[in-house]
């Protein structure tokens, strides 16, 4: 598995897309910090970017990489190798190289700006951790979609649709249902609702740091326990781990049975 991981990783490192991705984050970080001069505002803008763009890029990269390296995969399958290690190796190669571009691209300008001396370091590292989680989750979801669809166009279509659903449509439906059932106690429902969407989940994690004062304005014991203590942080991180684990398990199961 590690050989394939290494191969995929260096293959991606050599491809121009990784550099584009890295350059994009580098530029974003520099623009935010050096034209803005305000770390807390930069962290908020960055949060919006990470929550929307990281899943999108993870999804597209995942699908693209799978379809592009399909012939090579078929060649590998002819060798005496475990199927799970081939696919997991490829998946981890994609996810790790994307995460590295993200961390280096954003980390370098922030370090140059003097992050270690500022007390925004925790907010910032939380942002990077959440970005990494999102990369892992969405590239795994992309691999799942690609594994299930032989047709590239269809695969791409589903992948983009999935991103669109989780990033925007889900919140719309969520809000509508909250308003529709506003006569009922909704605090548990709304917290469970955020758990079911990795993007909402990461947003909640960041909100716990940035907007805690607003979140505590709502009268509800469940909310208060969730947002007012470390309980929320632990639960959210745990849910993110589950969100990584489930699609990865499905990759393993699906690849075992797939006919090439």
């Amino acid at each position: 598995m590690f050989k394939i991981l290494k191969y995929s990783f260096f293959d991606l490192m050599r491809s121009s897309w990784s550099y584009v991705y890295f350059a994009f984050y580098l530029l974003l970080g520099i623009v935010l910090l050096f034209l803005n001069n305000d770390l807390s505002k930069a962290v908020i803008t960055l949060m919006n970017v990470i929550i929307v763009l990281v899943p999108l890029i993870g999804t597209i990269f995942g699908v693209m990489y799978y379809y592009n390296s399909k012939e090579f995969t078929e060649l590998l399958l002819a060798q005496p190798l475990k199927r799970s290690s081939i696919f997991l190796g490829q998946y981890l190669g994609v996810a790790i190289s994307l995460s590295m571009s993200l961390i280096l691209g954003l980390g370098l300008p922030f370090i140059a700006y003097g992050l270690f001396k500022s007390n925004a370091i925790w907010d910032f590292s939380l942002l990077l951790i959440v970005g990494m989680f999102l990369t892992f989750i969405f590239s795994a979801l992309a691999f799942n979609i690609a594994l299930s669809n032989e047709n590239r166009i269809k695969g791409f279509g589903y992948a983009i649709l999935m991103w669109l659903f989780l990033a925007i449509i889900y919140d719309g439906l969520f809000l509508m249902s909250l308003i529709l059932f506003e006569d009922y106690p909704l605090d548990k429902v709304s917290l469970i609702g955020t758990m079911l969407n990795p993007i909402d989940l990461s947003r909640t994690l960041i909100l716990l740091k940035l907007d805690i004062s607003a979140l505590l304005g709502y009268t509800g014991a469940v909310f208060k326990q969730f947002f007012g203590t470390n309980f929320g942080l632990i639960i959210s991180l745990f849910a993110l781990l589950i969100w990584v684990a489930l699609p990865v398990i499905r990759i393993v199961l699906k690849s075992k049975r797939k006919d090439f």
Binding site: I51, D171, L175, L186, D187, S190, R203, L215
Partner: peptide, 20 residues
């Protein structure tokens, strides 16, 4: 305005849909 009406919707704070 929405949060005033349905306080639980505060969990959607800073979501892309809300921005839209």
């Amino acid at each position: 305005y929405l949060v005033n009406r349905t306080p639980e919707s505060i969990v959607l704070l800073r979501s892309l849909f809300i921005d839209i």
